[in-house]
């Protein structure tokens, strides 16, 4: 990521070179931003095996569109926008063939889901097992959320971006982001609750 004024100046130079047709300079930009792009993609799609392919495709799109980049936002923000759009398409394609909410799952799926979410930590390995169960819960919650909700939840809860940063990337105002975020969280919790009440007999919890 560009941080110092020197870094920024260098980045501007690379961008201008790429815009003038120098492909090699794009490699510099890729190396500077790939970590952030990988993080965003991984958090959005939650599939390690897909991250690299999606990153390649997102960078190709960025390269093809770079002449339209006009330095209004930071290059990182512009790139995040392209990455996000690419993942959005991917998620929509992917989820077209899947059930949306827990209560639409079959009995077997619900049982598996409950087992994951409620998996008690094993003695001695508490940390690892508990964390795995929690990560699994996040995967399930996000997999069931509509694509728009998933994107905003990912940016806030996994990428840890501020509402201001999210607003810039999504090109929305801050209050709209706050409202959408709250709605997405609410829908997610409602879905989870619905699942738990429809699922097999609830287990006792602390």
């Amino acid at each position: 990521m560009a941080t110092t004024p020197n870094d920024l100046a260098q980045e501007v130079e690379w961008i201008q070179r790429v815009q003038a047709g120098d492909r090699e300079s794009f490699g510099r930009l890729v190396e500077r931003h790939q970590r952030r792009v990988f993080s965003l993609i991984f958090h959005l799609v939650r599939r390690r095996d897909e991250v690299e392919d999606l990153a390649q495709e997102a960078f190709v799109k960025a390269f093809l569109a770079i002449r339209s980049y006009n330095f209004q936002s930071s290059f990182g923000t512009w790139l995040a926008r392209i990455t996000l759009n690419h993942c959005y398409d991917y998620l929509r394609r992917e989820r077209a063939s899947r059930v949306r909410y827990f209560w639409q799952m079959g009995e077997e799926g619900r049982k598996q889901m409950e087992a994951r979410a409620e998996r008690p930590p094993k003695e001695g390995r508490e940390g690892a097992d508990e964390r795995l169960a929690r990560t699994d819960l996040v995967d399930q919650l996000l997999a069931r959320a509509p694509a728009d909700d998933r994107i905003i939840l990912t940016m806030k809860e996994l990428e840890d971006l501020s509402v201001e940063e999210i607003a810039e990337i999504l090109d929305l105002n801050v209050s709209t982001v706050k409202v959408r975020l709250h709605r997405a969280r609410k829908r997610m919790l409602e879905d989870w609750k619905k699942y738990r009440s429809k699922g097999p007999a609830p287990r006792s919890r602390k």
Binding site: R131, R134, T135, V138, L153, E157
Partner: peptide, 8 residues
């Protein structure tokens, strides 16, 4: 849920 997200 937010604890689960932090872990993830």
């Amino acid at each position: 849920v937010s604890e689960a997200f932090r872990a993830a």
